[in-house]
């Protein structure tokens, strides 16, 4: 878990560079909530607190959620999200190792459905820490500084009949944030913290599905490059879908799992009602994991 947290540094750094230190405020808020919620629930469940806190899994869940939500979302958004992730995503199933869903994505889905407005207002430019904290803690509003994400913007424009060429290409901030997570992910692969099957198959899924759509009508569907380097694609491929607890565990199962998430990400982005699709794609595939695992058992020696 520690290695995964270290590997996030570049991507988070890029977010800070483009959106300001408010990202850090969200992370700190999330971590405090996560550790507190975990401790309280472990106590209620009569478990020892220290080993479970020190494995870093709660903190990782909090960080993943904190960097997925808009950096200037009000403070209670991240707090509620993390509480939901830790309590209903993890502890209620029996803690680490027993949760069928990815807790961070469960928290994200909960927030996105319950608070769509707060969850889609991203800062459109760099925001100083002072301004950010005022917004986060509800002292002032900075409506003028926020806007939809590029994915959201593209979707709206396309619906209004604009063509891809008019809308333009990937935003610089999205590009660099995704590259940051890509590099972190490659580090994890080399350290063998994660295995190659899920990231590679997920990215292939995104590539295949978006290519098919792009080939059908390049005027109305964004390119593969756009899909690969926008939104949370890289974060999903290396940090979210690779959560071992809720992912498939057989070698072939992992490939199927990752690939289908990739396909679903593109489908939900293009045809769904929400700007980004990672959370729903991952959660949907989480449900299918026992089935995938059962039917993709490797051939045992002598069978």
């Amino acid at each position: 878990m520690r290695q995964v947290i270290y590997a996030l540094v570049l991507g988070v750094g890029a977010q800070i560079y483009f959106f300001g230190l408010s990202v850090l405020i969200q992370i700190v808020l999330g971590c405090i909530t996560a550790v507190a919620a975990e401790a309280v629930f472990l106590r209620l469940r009569g478990q020892t607190i220290k080993p479970s806190i020190s494995d870093g899994s709660a903190v990782l869940t909090a960080i993943l959620l904190a960097i997925s939500i808009p950096s200037i979302a009000p403070w209670w958004v991240i707090v509620l999200g993390v509480l939901f992730a830790i309590i209903f995503g993890k502890q209620i199933f029996g803690g680490l190792g027993n949760n069928p869903f990815n807790p961070a994505m469960l928290g994200y889905a909960f927030l996105l459905i319950s608070y769509p407005l707060q969850m889609t207002q991203w800062p459109s430019e760099f925001i100083s820490i002072a301004q950010a904290s005022e917004t986060i803690f509800g002292l002032s509003s900075i409506d003028g500084l926020t806007g939809a994400t590029k994915l959201d913007y593209v979707k709206t424009q396309l619906m209004m009949g604009a063509s891809i060429k008019e809308i333009g290409s990937i935003s610089i901030s999205q590009l660099w944030i995704n590259i940051g997570f890509l590099i972190g992910g490659i580090y994890l692969l080399f350290r063998r913290v994660i295995l190659w099957q899920i990231p590679i198959s997920l990215l292939s899924g995104v590539l295949v599905m978006s290519s098919i759509l792009f080939l059908i009508d390049s005027n109305h569907y964004a390119s593969s490059i756009f899909h690969l380097l926008s939104g949370a694609t890289m974060l999903a491929a290396f940090f979210i879908a690779t959560d071992p607890v809720s992912a498939s565990t057989t070698p072939l199962g992992r490939i199927i799992y990752g690939f289908l998430i990739g396909i679903l990400i593109v489908i939900i982005r293009v045809y769904g009602g929400y700007p980004d699709a990672v959370a729903f794609a991952v959660l949907l595939l989480n449900i299918t994991v026992p089935l995938i695992d059962f039917y993709t058992q490797p051939k045992v020696l002598g069978k």
């Binding site: 494995d55 190792g97 027993n98 295995l195 071992p244 607890v245």
Partner: peptide, 8 residues
């Protein structure tokens, strides 16, 4: 021993 995290 800690919990299994299904790392594989």
């Amino acid at each position: 021993a800690q919990e299994c995290i299904r790392c594989g």
